[in-house]
Simulated scan of single mutants.
Amino acid sequence: MVDIFDEINEDLRAERTARLLKKYGWVLVLAAVGIVGGTVGWQVWDRWQANRDMAAAEQYMAAQAAAVTANVPGAPGQSDAIATLERNAATAPEGYKTLSLLRAAGLKANAGDIPGAVQLWDEVARDGTADPLLRDLASLLAVQHQIDKGDPAMLEARLKPLTDPTNAWASLAKEQLALLDLRQGKVDDARTALQSLAESATAPDGVRQRAAALLAGMGDA
């Protein structure tokens, strides 16, 4: 009797399985195809990404090579290097896009095109997908190149967040704020900031030396 019941149960399970396969077998087929297709798709995507990265790297290096002789304003190849970098930024993955924009901005600044350079630095500074370190650097460079003519309130608003002690550019941002104070006639504020930078153990040597030189020029050697 037990054997008969076991056989009946097995038959029922087999029949139920057959009905399920007949009704939903296409789902299993699609799932299998999806798994295979997904694997192939991922490999294709991964290869495409690698090729795109390589192409972006090659374009960036080509622009860098052109830029080597383009650091002097008006040098041959400068406009070509800028154009190559801007084209690369339009299609390159995020890292190369940011580097290309920063390099192009530097070349424009060297050529005297400060508004064009600031526009590119601002583009990097506003890019939420770019590395925060590079975003802050772009913002600092944009301010630095407007420190003598830009709107003081706007420049100060951009510099203040960069003076946080945890920010990599804090000392340079404080230096720019001191220069902005000097421009506005806030001599005491500038002197205090420069004294702090000159005595700072964490500020780069160049910042300390410039701060000391400015203090000397103000009669605070």
Rank of each mutant, 00 (worst) to 15 (best):
T69D: 11
A67Y: 05
Q78N: 07
Q119M: 08
P161V: 13
D148M: 13
A56S: 04
L120R: 02
D80L: 14
D131C: 05
E199P: 08
A92M: 03
E175R: 00
W121K: 00
T163D: 06
R210E: 05
I114H: 01
S79W: 00
L107P: 14
A221M: 04
L21I: 11
L172G: 06
W169Q: 10
A104N: 12
L141C: 03
Q49F: 08
R126L: 04
L180K: 00
W169A: 10
L141R: 12
D189A: 09
R52T: 07
T84E: 13
L155H: 02
Q176V: 01
A221I: 06
Q144H: 00
E15T: 12
I114N: 03
Q209R: 05
V72I: 15
A55Y: 08
R47F: 06
A117I: 08
P132V: 09
L20P: 15
A211Y: 01
Y96W: 14
L137M: 10
K97S: 14
G77F: 06
L99S: 15
M61T: 15
D136V: 01
A63S: 15
Q49R: 15
A90T: 01
I35H: 08
P161Y: 04
D53I: 02
L180W: 03
I4V: 13
K97I: 09
I8K: 10
Q176P: 06
G38L: 05
W169N: 12
K22M: 01
Q59D: 12
A198K: 02
V68R: 14
E123C: 02
E10T: 13
V207T: 10
V143D: 04
L155E: 03
I35S: 11
N51D: 15
D11H: 07
W48H: 11
N88F: 00
I4F: 11
D3R: 08
E156D: 10
A67M: 14
R208N: 05
R103T: 15
G25E: 10
A201N: 14
A213W: 02
L182D: 00
W121H: 12
L101Q: 15
